[in-house]
């Protein structure tokens, strides 16, 4: 069975397409992901307001993992993706061969919801990931 534990916590769907939920500080304009109550930049409580983050970002750095986290099928790609609003987001990258040659620093990627791993009850745990812009599938 597919389960979606991150929905409405890390992302929401609009017209079937996912976007990440961030928060933006009313005082200093800092944008955080995941959402925060205290602004980490100006350390004000209660200044953070929910914002919808861009669906596209750029690869800041990445690695192809051959030994993975528990339940994740290897090999797979992980990356830090920088969004135009500023957040640097840890995420898996799919929609391309899990190889060094599939990606480069600066490559443009877009947000998708796809399978992350199998849990101990054999559920397919779904969540946010990125894929190269123009890739056909997740």
């Amino acid at each position: 069975m597919k389960i979606f534990p991150q929905e409405n916590t890390y992302y929401r769907l609009r017209n079937g397409k996912p976007y990440l939920i961030g928060s933006k500080c009313r005082y200093c304009d800092y944008v955080a992901f995941p959402r925060k109550v205290v602004c980490p930049a100006c350390v004000t409580k209660g200044s953070m307001e929910e914002v919808e983050l861009s669906q596209r970002g750029k690869i800041d750095t990445f690695s192809v993992l051959h030994i993975g986290a528990p339940g994740f099928a290897v090999p797979y790609i992980v990356a830090y993706v920088v969004l135009p609003e500023g957040p640097r987001i840890f995420s898996m990258v799919s929609g391309c061969e899990p190889s060094e040659k599939s990606l480069e620093i600066g490559a443009e990627v877009e947000l998708i919801v796809d399978k992350l791993r199998d849990d101990e009850q054999d559920n397919e745990v779904m969540g946010y990931k990125f894929r190269p812009v123009g890739a056909e599938s997740g």
């Binding site: 993992l65 994740f72 992980v78």
Partner: peptide, 8 residues
């Protein structure tokens, strides 16, 4: 839970 490992 997002696939993180220290090696990564």
């Amino acid at each position: 839970d997002l696939g993180f490992q220290f090696t990564a």
